[in-house]
Each structure stands twice: as C-alpha cells, then as structure tokens.
Design a protein around this nucleic acid. Structure first.
Lengths: 196, 196
DNA sequence: GTCTATAAAGCGATAGAC
DNA sequence: GTCTATCGCTTTATAGAC
C-alpha cells in the first residue's frame, strides 16, 4: 500500500468499497478519508467535484471493468458458451458469492436515482444486450435469448439481496449454478412455457 | 387526511414511503416532517427513540402486513395454488410493478445491515419457508419446492432492482408472469435439470 | 399533542500554509 | 500533493411554552 497516492485511480478501490458498504448518503468524507488514507485536501485535489465526482469515478471504473471483462466478450467473442460461463465465473468472484454488494444495483434501489440514473440504466442495458447477443449466437431464438438474459441478470441481483439478507453465501452459489444450467444450451429443450 | 395524528400508526404509511425513497441515512427528520405533516415535537412524542425507532416501527408494520396477507395464507391455507397466485397478485400490487422499492430488501443491500439485520433475515426466512410449505402442499417435492421458493423470492427482488434501473414496469410484470407459470403446478413436468 | 427555539455534533466544502 | 483550520449549513435530539 503506497503511502502517497500518486493518482486518483489508486484511491478508487477503497472508495468503491466505502460506497458499497455505506451507500452514497452514508459514505461521509471522514469515512472516505479513513478508508483511502487521504485527507480532505488530497481528496478534493483528486476529485474537485467532491463526493459526487468520487461516486461517478467509481461507477465509471466498475462500468469499465464489466465492459471489458464481461460485456465486450459476450458481444464480440465467437465462442458464446465460453463467454457466458466466464460471465458467471466473473460474477461469483466479483460479488464474492453475494457478500459484496453490486453498487450499481444498490444505487438503482436507493436514494439517488436521478443523480446516477443514466449510468445505472446504461450499465444494465448493455449487460442485457450483450448477454442476449451471446445467447443468440449460442443457438437460442431472439425471444428466448432476451428472456433468459433478463432472467440471469435479475437472478444475480436478487441473489445478492437474498444472500446478504440471510447471510448465506451458499445460496448465491446455488442460484448461479442453476442459472448456468438454464443458459447452457438450447438443445436441452425449450426453456419454459411461452416465452412471448 | 387528519390534521391531527392521533396514533403513531397513522404516520407509518408516509414514514414508510420516505424510507423507501431516501433510504435510512437519506431520510432526514426534515423530510420526514414534511411527509408526515408532523413537527419534530410530535415525531419524538410518538417515537422517543428517534429515527431508528421510526424505521423499526415501519419494518414491523411491513412485516405484519406480509405475515397476515401472504405468509400465513401460504402456510395454513388448504388451497396452495390459490394462495401462491394471491402472493403474486399481492407482490404486483404492493410493489407497484417494481416502481416501489422493497424496503426490507433495500436495507439488506444497504448501509445498516447490523442495525436491522435480524428483522431482515426473519422476513425473508419466513417468506421462503411459507412458500415452500405451500409448494409442497401443491405437489412439489421438498427439494423442488425449496428451489422454486428461492427462485421466486430472488426473482421478485431482482425484478425490483432491474425495473427501477431501466424504468420499465413491463419488465417487472413479465418476470412475475414467468414465475407464476413456473410455480403453477408440478404436473407440467420436472421444473429443470437437477434440482439438487 | 404540537409548536418554536436551541443545543451539540457532524456534514460537505474551502482556504492557505507548507 | 498533503495538511490543519475553519466556514456555513444541516443533522439528530432536547427543552419548554402553550
């Protein structure tokens, strides 16, 4: 851990954890200062826009990570089954089996929708679109691919809520495992009833 | 709307909406005062424990509503398919097609887990247990009933997150409709792969 | 039971020394 | 780039009049 933070990028991981743990309103500058090891002077040097700019920087970092590690491969890679499997791997690792909150999802539920609404919306839209593309490439119909993509992202977000509520990481892994099976291959039969 | 609030119960609906919209930390006493029409004097008269007591009262009210309108019927009513259908009806109405946040779920994600953790845990445990009981009574195996109950509650919570993120109430209704089908009857075939 | 006034603390943000 | 001191404001909570 560097005593001196050379770039604001270096502060983003700790910053992200603070926002995840305390939410936007609950993340006070004193908590942020302790978590990052930075005084207010340094914080405002790196983030002249204050807390809101810090949150936007964190959101952008999270978005960039998912874009390059998850969304882009789903959209562009020619091996859809591998990238879907890699998506679930990434989700299990990233959210630490539901122990770590999805900040984007938390902001969607939370207090400050209109402030970060556009970023939140774009994140989930691109996730759904990219996953749909991969599923179509894997052989699902467009309609089924959409429905399954929604089911997967909904399942992941819901699993985080329930896992934290019940404090049961095994539940998270169980739900992810079930989603893996269901998205695996269209040849296993029609997914369910009328996917209108 | 009564000018004078006779009991603290009368203030709970407005109070609940404030906590849902702003979260626990974001719900300031001035916002609460405006929403309830009560001054600080009255608020502390009804809730000597301050904001935390207000939130606990709201949680207890929500819990009581679900317990009597949803959980108890699922557990005790002899017509499981009807009570499961009624649960989905209640969910669609109560959460206003995903426009209204589940406060219990939001607290689970949010800032103050250790403060309300026990209430949150109990709420979701009783929901899962009650739904499992009804599904077993409807003919599902114990294992499948558990898995489907988890899937339903996870789906509902995830649907709220995604619906608010994308601002698409139709998505909420679509997901609920799919869950309805899947929980409807075991005679429609095995639910999916290995529900271990 | 409701009000106003007020206390004490914490908040986000700024300024200026170094 | 980091620090301390400080500003102005809002916060939760209390006190006391009515």
């Amino acid at each position: 851990m560097p005593r001196t933070v050379a770039e604001r990028t270096d502060a983003l991981p700790a910053l992200a954890e603070v926002f995840r743990e305390h939410g936007y309103e609950g993340a006070s500058l004193s908590i942020i200062g302790k978590a990052t090891g930075l005084g207010k002077g340094s914080l405002y040097h790196f983030f002249p826009g204050g807390k809101e700019e810090m949150a936007r920087a964190v959101l952008a970092e999270i978005d960039g990570w998912f874009e390059s590690h998850v969304f882009a491969p789903l959209r562009e890679d020619a091996r859809p089954r591998e990238t879907v499997a890699a998506m679930f791997d990434a989700v299990e690792t990233y959210f630490r089996s539901g122990d770590r909150v999805c900040l984007v999802g938390a902001l969607a539920l939370g207090e400050v929708r209109e402030r970060f609404g556009e970023s939140v919306k774009s994140y989930f839209e691109r996730w759904l679109d990219a996953l749909s593309v991969a599923l179509v490439r894997a052989g699902w119909s467009g309609t089924d691919a959409r429905a399954l993509a929604e089911e997967a992202v909904v399942g992941i977000q819901g699993a985080i809520v329930l896992t934290r509520a019940l404090d049961r990481p095994d539940l998270f892994q169980h739900i992810i495992a079930r989603l893996r099976e269901r998205l695996d291959a269209p040849s296993n039969g029609e997914p369910f009833g009328n996917a209108s």
